[in-house]
Write a protein that binds this DNA or RNA. Sequence first.
DNA 1: ATGAATCATTCGAGCTATGAACGATTCCTG
DNA 2: CAGGAATCGTTCATAGCTCGAATGATTCAT
Lengths: 148, 148
Amino acid sequence: MDDVNANALTDTLSFRLGVLGPLVSARFAGAVEPLGVKPKHVGLMAVLSAGAPASQQELARVMSVVPSLVVGLADQLEELGAIERVRDPADRRRHRLSLTDAGRELLAACLAAAAALDAELTASLGVRDREVLLRLLGVLAREAGLPA
Amino acid sequence: MDDVNANALTDTLSFRLGVLGPLVSARFAGAVEPLGVKPKHVGLMAVLSAGAPASQQELARVMSVVPSLVVGLADQLEELGAIERVRDPADRRRHRLSLTDAGRELLAACLAAAAALDAELTASLGVRDREVLLRLLGVLAREAGLPA
DNA sequence: ATGAATCATTCGAGCTATGAACGATTCCTG
DNA sequence: CAGGAATCGTTCATAGCTCGAATGATTCAT
C-alpha cells in the first residue's frame, strides 16, 4: 500500500530524462562511431544543414557550447571532407562553414543510424504512442529554448 | 515543400532524448547542489530507498557504473550522514549500505527539487500530456533494462 | 586614425568516469 | 582441511570532455 510512491523519484520526468539521455547518447555514439564521428559532430552538421552557412560563434551559440570547442569539431569534420571552412569575404575574421556533398551523405547516414536506434528503443511502443512521445519531447525541447 | 523533412534528424527520438537529457541533468544538478549532493548521489540514495541494504557491487551494477566510483559517492554520503556503511556480518568482504533518517530526509528534499523541475519543464503541457509523457518514458526505461 | 570590440585559435586546468592493480576475505575442490 | 581461485572494497594513474583565459588578426565606432 505504501510502496506505491515508495521511491517516487524514479517516477519523475527529470529523473527519467536524466537517465535515459546519457543512455541513448551512448548508444547513438556507438552507432555513428564506425562513421568516424561523435554525437557533437552530428549536431554541428545538423544545424549546418538546417540553414545557411554559419560562423563558428553562431554554431557555438546554437549548440550551447563554448566557441573553442567548435574549433576542434570543425577541424575534424573538415579532415573528413564533410564541411568547408572559408573565410567570409564580407568579414574576414569569420569562417563560413558549409556542408559539402560528402557531408550531406554523412549526415544522411547518421540520420539512418538514429532512425534505426529509434526503432529499437520504441520496439514495444505502438505507432501512435511513438508519435505522441516524439511530439511531446519536441514541445519540451522548444520550451527549453532548444533548436528542436 | 521540401523543408518538411529538411533536417529530419532533430525529429528523431534519439536526438531529442540525447539533447534533452544533459540539459535537464544540468538543471537538476543545479537544483540539488545547495543540498551538497550531485545527481549520482541522488541516484544512489534512490536505489537504496527502493530496497534492502545493498553491497557496493550491487549498487554499481544497478547504476551501470564501475564499482570504484561507488566508493567515492558512498564516502561523501557517509560524511553527510545520509547513509551507513557497516561490514556485512555474513560476508565480511561486503559493505552493507543503508539510508539513515537524515538520508531519507535528504532524498525527500531532492525529490521535491525534481518535482519542481518537472513543473517548470512541463509548464506548457496539459496534465494529461504530462502523464502520458511520463508513462511512455517509463516504458522506454524499462525496455532499456533500467530500474525505472 | 586610433582605441574598443569581435572572431577564431591555442593552451592549460578541472572534473568525471574508467581500468588496472592490491590486500582482505570467502568459496570451491580435491 | 588445506590451498588456489574468485569476490569485495579500495587506491591510484589515466584518458576524455568541456570550459575559461590569453593571443593575434580583423573590423567597427568615433
